[in-house]
Write a protein that binds this DNA or RNA. Structure first.
Lengths: 108, 108
DNA sequence: TAATTAAGACACCAAAAGGTGTCCTATTAG
DNA sequence: CTAATAGGACACCTTTTGGTGTCTTAATTA
């Protein structure tokens, strides 16, 4: 457990393409049960469930039981950490593009 | 090798805290040789070298040989992909914060 | 009530990740 | 010329990751 109450690093949670796809699926609806999420993947239910557990550890999804199904819901808030981190580097690639444009100008 | 000419997924490259620290170190200077980078970590040179190789596979660093040392340089451009990805979710956490503020208003 | 369905809990497995230490070569300093 | 240094290339090891299948329980439907 880290200082943000997350068991899992959010960068780590988001590193896997399956998990990014899960977030994307949950972005389109209020909530979805495990079995409906599983439909979108080739892997079995157990694997998808594990990925969701990791996302939950990072605080990126919440879940609640409704009857016999467990419904998952997106919580994008922890992504703010990544946003802030990457913002620091934004200047670097813009600078790079500016330099490239300058070179193109000189060529002309 | 993916469609962007990267061998390694940029999300994956950035998931490791050691590699994020390497990027941060390289952000402060033009270029740094392996041994100077290694000083900032507890692990050995070989391990740091491996992390740099992964960053290079993702296109996040370049390197060149100068004499007997290999100097590394930051290339932040691939981070744009992450920036764009996370931007999509920005609305979600802002919406959430807005809702929380609304609840606080009602309490008053 | 009986059959079906959702999903948690495990045990298990192969491959990848993240380290280590050793050896070898190229470059530089004394 | 010799000694020291930078770092590439391996071999090796342990832990984690990402998947599988099976069993069990709880909820639903026929």
């Amino acid at each position: 457990m880290n200082e943000k109450g997350q068991v899992r690093d959010v960068y780590d949670a988001v590193a896997d393409p399956t998990r990014r796809k899960l977030l994307r699926l949950l972005a389109d609806v209020e909530e979805l049960p495990l079995n409906e999420l599983t439909v979108h993947f080739q892997m079995g239910r157990t694997a998808v469930s594990k990925h969701l557990a990791i996302l939950k550890e990072a605080g990126l999804v919440t879940n609640r039981k409704v009857g016999r199904e467990t419904r998952y819901r997106l919580n994008a808030t922890p992504l703010k950490e990544i946003k802030d981190w990457v913002s620091f580097y934004e200047g670097f690639w813009k600078e790079r593009i500016a330099k490239l444009n300058l070179l193109l100008e000189e060529k002309k």
